[in-house]
Design a protein around this nucleic acid. Sequence first.
DNA 1: CCTCAAACGGACTACCGAGTCCGCTTACAG
DNA 2: CTGTAAGCGGACTCGGTAGTCCGTTTGAGG
Lengths: 173, 173
Amino acid sequence: MTELRADARRNHERVLDAATEVFAASGPDASIDEIARLAGVGHGTVFRRFPTKDDLMYAVIERHVAQICSLAEEALASDDPAEAFFGFARAAAELGMTTPGLHKCIVHCGEKPRGAELEELGTKIVSRAQRAGGLRRDVEPSDVAPLIRAALIAAPPGQWRRYLDVVLDGLRS
Amino acid sequence: MTELRADARRNHERVLDAATEVFAASGPDASIDEIARLAGVGHGTVFRRFPTKDDLMYAVIERHVAQICSLAEEALASDDPAEAFFGFARAAAELGMTTPGLHKCIVHCGEKPRGAELEELGTKIVSRAQRAGGLRRDVEPSDVAPLIRAALIAAPPGQWRRYLDVVLDGLRS
DNA sequence: CCTCAAACGGACTACCGAGTCCGCTTACAG
DNA sequence: CTGTAAGCGGACTCGGTAGTCCGTTTGAGG
């Protein structure tokens, strides 16, 4: 069996869900206590599974990234590289903005988690679009995500689509 | 005269300078103690002049904004509205990036300080450029600064000029 | 000089959040 | 059913910061 008692596995799940919700709402400043309360466990339980707050944050992001990866794969399947890129950017933004605080968490974490898989897929999408001439060449693939994320964070509540448009237009050749 | 003893005035000055330096380096999370230490005063002295940390931060930003205002006035003097805008944006960014943490402070403070004067000048510059057709019309004047600031914050140390270029290109009609 | 209010500065309080510890509870194997 | 190790959770420690208070120092007017 999974080497984990049933209640332990259940709590692990609950904590991850609660953490996602709380980090999404409050960004990296969310407190472990609040997460534990929402999960309905003592905060000692949280720390047993995730020795530090950052570990927990990584885990949340990791799970979130998995969803984005599948979008990225779809995009790579398309045969219009430029449209694939812009479509993917919008879709990913759409998904990400359901959990705005996570952007700040990703920024906070810096390099650490950022699933290598997504990193790679993203690079492919960007450089493919650049080769096809739909995307300016003087940006590194690794610049694109931070730029977009920054605009999304800065945008006032209802306005992020407009902000995104500006940045995406700026990225066109 | 200023109704303020000589040493008081001198310390006020020192605190403001130290605060500028520390906030510029560490953003809004800088601690009052560090500022007081750098200023060479006890932290009680800091609190006497600036009852809360935010008050101090506002004061620092206020002073910083004054410098930007003079750039804005120059820009309004130019008779090429579009170039005035883009030139001003670059100049202000250049100035602002000598004190990167202040961007985060401005974001942190939200509406509160934001000198009304600069607000007004900025609006004029933007809408003048829009009327002249050099700037896309689907952005509000109040969107421009946050967008640019976001890009500057997100940029890795040496790279902010490239990030700025992307955003500015996105703002062109 | 001398006085004294203004100004100083550091000890102190209050609070908050991360991370530890340990006595109690409970899943589950035998 | 029972023994026991895995798991639980809250009390506790520790560190760090905003803001207060008050005994001491000092600038400046008379």
